[in-house]
Computed example of a mutant assay.
Amino acid sequence: MSCKKPSDGDRRLLDKSGFAQEFLRRNPRYRSDYQKVMRARRGSTEEQEVMARRWGLAFPLRAWLVRG
């Protein structure tokens, strides 16, 4: 897996999630919101989840969290 960022010409090759990631990465409001939550000394998982929902993000559950 490459960490190389796509050039302008490569963006047309992005799938929906890749396009969304590029959009958020370049959005100044998202970046500011993300930095506030991540810098907070008492930043809780709940605050991170609220921020993620605000931006329409959803993360699949990991298998180890689902096991009982």
Rank of each mutant, 00 (worst) to 15 (best):
D33Y: 00
Y30G: 00
M1A: 15
V66E: 15
R54H: 07
G18Y: 07
A63E: 15
K16A: 14
S44L: 07
S17R: 06
R29K: 13
L14N: 01
P28L: 05
W64V: 08
R67Y: 02
L24I: 08
E22A: 04
Y30W: 15
P6I: 02
Y30K: 06
P6L: 00
S17N: 06
R67F: 05
Q21G: 12
E49D: 11
E46Q: 03
G9E: 04
E47W: 09
L24H: 01
R67H: 01
E22T: 04
L24Q: 02
R12H: 05
R29P: 01
Q35V: 02
N27I: 03
R54S: 07
F19A: 05
M1P: 07
S32W: 09
K16Q: 09
T45A: 07
Y30F: 14
K36S: 06
Y30P: 00
G56S: 10
A40Q: 12
A20F: 08
D10Q: 07
R53C: 14
P60S: 08
W64Q: 12
A63S: 11
E46L: 03
W64T: 11
K4W: 05
A63T: 14
E46P: 00
S7Y: 05
R42E: 00
R67T: 03
A20K: 05
F23A: 15
Q21A: 13
R39F: 09
L13I: 08
L13A: 12
L14G: 02
W64G: 06
D15M: 05
L13F: 10
W64N: 12
G68K: 05
P28I: 03
A58L: 13
N27A: 09
D15R: 06
R25Y: 09
V50R: 15
T45W: 04
E46S: 01
P60D: 09
Q21K: 14
S32K: 09
Q48D: 03
R39C: 13
C3D: 14
L57W: 00
G18M: 10
V50G: 10
E46N: 02
R67I: 07
F59P: 03
Y34A: 06
L24N: 01
E49Y: 03
W55A: 11
W64F: 10
R26I: 01
P28N: 10
L57N: 00
L14S: 00
R12M: 02
F23R: 15
R26C: 04
S44K: 03
G43W: 02
L61Y: 05
D10L: 02
E46W: 01
D33Q: 04
L57E: 00
M38L: 15
S32R: 09
G18V: 12
D15G: 15
S7Q: 09
K4A: 14
Y30I: 01
R53M: 12
R31K: 06
M1E: 08
L13D: 06
K5V: 09
R29A: 11
R31Q: 15
K16L: 10
R39I: 04
A58W: 15
R39M: 13
R25D: 11
N27M: 07
V66I: 05
K16C: 06
D10I: 01
A58M: 11
R42P: 00
E49M: 04
W64D: 10
L65T: 13
E22K: 01
L13S: 11
K36V: 03
P28E: 08
P6Y: 01
W55M: 11
A58C: 13
W55Q: 08
Q35G: 02
R26D: 05
S2N: 12
N27K: 05
K36Q: 12
W64M: 11
W64A: 13
K36G: 02
T45Q: 05
